[in-house]
């Protein structure tokens, strides 16, 4: 028994150094050399100011921007507190929340694409479905005073198809789409 105890203590120390310190630091070194930007979170800069990560969603409200999905992370899109709503499908809070969001997003009597009114798993979903982007097209075009066709081609350019043709679902990165809007068709106050 005493021998196993000695083995166990030594094994814990040796493997902690190898697997808990050397391994992650070695991977960090390799990653920082090969894929620096990605390893650091793909931060986007505008006029020298960090304005977000390309793959972390941000909240957008008002008619001139494409809206992101509802978020349950902290007070919404809190990237230091990720998470979903964890509401069950039969919870009245979910049903009422979706009803409120439908009211806010709905155009005429057209049903709203489901991803636009449901909270994502991470609360930081950077994407909406192409359907949810097209759904908001008329509003964005109108509020920026530009033709719908211009917005439509912008959505098409920002639609990422299924990876390798079959993996996942096609999606539109909301932050990139909105930044492109601001660049090409700035809102004049």
């Amino acid at each position: 028994m005493k021998k196993h105890f000695v083995n166990a203590v030594l094994m814990t120390v040796v493997t902690t150094v190898l697997l808990g310190i050397v391994y992650p630091l070695a991977v960090t070194a390799i990653a920082q050399v090969l894929f620096r930007s990605k390893a650091d979170g793909q931060i986007i800069y505008r006029n020298g100011q960090a304005i977000g990560s390309r793959i972390i969603g941000q909240p957008f409200t008002g008619p001139e921007y494409f809206h992101s999905r509802p978020s349950a992370a902290g007070d919404g899109y809190d990237a230091a507190q990720s998470g979903g709503s964890n509401l069950s499908p039969t919870n009245h809070i979910l049903v009422e929340d979706v009803e409120k969001r439908v009211k806010a997003e709905q155009v005429g009597s057209n049903p709203v694409p489901i991803d636009l009114v449901t909270a994502s798993a991470s609360g930081l979903d950077p994407d909406i479905s192409p359907a949810a982007a097209y759904y908001q097209m008329a509003r964005v075009a109108h509020s920026r005073g530009i033709p719908e066709s211009a917005v439509q081609s912008l959505i098409e350019r920002h639609t990422q198809r299924r990876q390798l043709g079959f993996l996942g679902a096609s999606h539109v990165n909301v932050l990139e789409l909105n930044l492109a809007l601001d660049r090409l068709y700035p809102v004049h106050n």
Binding site: R69, N86, L87, I114, S120, D127, A169, H171
Partner: peptide, 10 residues
């Protein structure tokens, strides 16, 4: 059912 799911995974 997209509640609690990410768009990119479908």
């Amino acid at each position: 059912n997209m509640e609690g799911k990410e768009v990119r995974f479908g």
